Amino acid sequence: MSASWSSDSLGVSTSSQPVGAWRGGKLPLTLPGLMGGLLGIGGLITLLLLWWLGTDVLASSEGFIRQFSPTTAIPKLAAMLAGPDLPVHIMVSLRRVLVGLGFALLIGVPLGLAVGSYARLNIATSPAFQFLRMISPLSWMPIAVMVFGVGDNPIYFMLAFAAVWPILLNTAEGVRRLQPSWLSLADSLAATRWETLWHVILPGVLGHVLTGLRLAIGIVWIVLVPCEMLGVSAGLGYFILDTRDRLAYSELMATVLMIGILGFMLDAGARALYQAATRSHAA
């Protein structure tokens, strides 16, 4: 099976060794914590300045684009977070993301373990998996609504469909990269299949599973908003349509900003979980 969703092919290193070079010298991917944090904050401040310049400074005083400026969106976001509506929509969207990812893990991890363990199964399923994963999850929207009805169920289906492929393929790649000596040692100790799976295979592929989960979170968060624009009465996608219909453009921009903040936090949480699991496995 093509590992086109694997951590290596997507530029996510699963090794703790620094890589890269600069004029013959080593250039680690991870800078010291303080310097890395300052650079990250500097990048966010630069993005905020560009947003402000484009919507406040360079825009005409009567321009429509001024309604989307940070000077109106950020105060509006603070006010909305203190109000009753936006927190409800946030919780609804996060619940849908967690359910969709849960289904994707329940399906993707066992299938990935099986596909990575048996070469014939890998050969038999590879064309079907590659075909299915190239179908946009949003293209299933009309069919999902007809099958599951209006509400949360079609959203769960589309989110799980979007998230399952990076989890499945990364898990399978993790199984293929297991050290043969680990399996040989388990055999020499007369370990059962369950003991080998629980004590050798699962800890060995955990890093790949978490890498797939992080990729899945990014995909799901992108797919979620358009999914919530059809047939539901709550969620961040629904709220964007609601603000548009009310011509509340500052609220619309504040909601877009909130989506970016939540997505950033979800990715940071997945990255921290991966690093914690890697350190625990190395110890």
Rank of each mutant, 00 (worst) to 15 (best):
Gly235His: 03
Leu247Val: 13
Gly212Asp: 04
Ile155Asn: 01
Thr196Gly: 05
Arg246Gly: 02
Leu178Val: 08
Ile167Gln: 05
Ile219Tyr: 12
Pro154Ile: 07
Ile222Thr: 15
Pro166Cys: 06
Ala234Tyr: 11
Ala163Met: 06
Gln179Trp: 01
Ile217Met: 11
Leu230Tyr: 12
Arg214Gln: 15
Ala160Arg: 05
Leu202His: 02
Ala162Met: 05
Leu169Ile: 15
Trp194Leu: 15
Tyr238Glu: 06
Pro180Met: 09
Leu185Ala: 15
Gly207Phe: 02
Thr171Leu: 04
Trp221Tyr: 01
Ile219Pro: 00
Ser188Glu: 13
Leu168Ser: 08
Arg244Lys: 10
Ala191Arg: 07
Ala190Thr: 12
Arg214His: 09
Ala234Thr: 12
Val223His: 05
Ser188Arg: 14
Arg193Lys: 14
Leu189Gln: 15
Glu228Gln: 05
Leu215His: 11
His208Thr: 02
Met229Cys: 07
Arg214Phe: 06
Ile240His: 06
Ala172Gln: 11
Phe157Thr: 02
Gly207Asp: 06
Arg246Glu: 08
Arg214Asn: 10
Arg193Ile: 00
Leu247Met: 15
Leu210Gly: 00
His199Cys: 02
Ile240Thr: 15
Val220Asn: 06
Leu247Lys: 09
Leu159Phe: 10
Thr192Ser: 15
Val200Gln: 10
Tyr156Gln: 03
Gly212Tyr: 03
Leu159Ala: 09
Arg214Pro: 05
Ile240Asn: 13
Arg176Thr: 04
Leu224Glu: 03
Leu189Ala: 14
Ile240Cys: 11
Ser184Gln: 15
Ala190Lys: 10
Thr211Arg: 00
Ser181Tyr: 04
Val200Thr: 14
Phe148Cys: 01
Gly151Met: 03
Ala160Asp: 05
Ile155Val: 15
Cys227Val: 00
Asn153Gln: 09
Arg244Phe: 02
Val175Met: 05
Leu168Trp: 08
Leu168Tyr: 07
Leu224Ala: 07
Val220Cys: 14
Glu228Tyr: 06
Ala162Pro: 00
Leu224Arg: 04
Thr171Gln: 02
Gly235Ala: 07
Val150Met: 11
Ser188His: 13
Leu241Trp: 01
Glu228Thr: 04
Asp242His: 12
Arg193Gly: 00
Ala190Glu: 12
Asp152Ser: 10
Leu189Asn: 14
Thr192Trp: 10
His199Ser: 14
Glu228Leu: 05
Asp242Ala: 11
Arg193Asn: 08
Ile201His: 01
Gly149Asn: 07
Leu247Asn: 10
Pro226Asp: 07
Phe161Pro: 01
Tyr238Asp: 08
Arg177Leu: 13
Trp194Ala: 14
Val150Asp: 00
Ser184His: 13
Ala234Leu: 09
Asp152Val: 08
Thr243Trp: 13
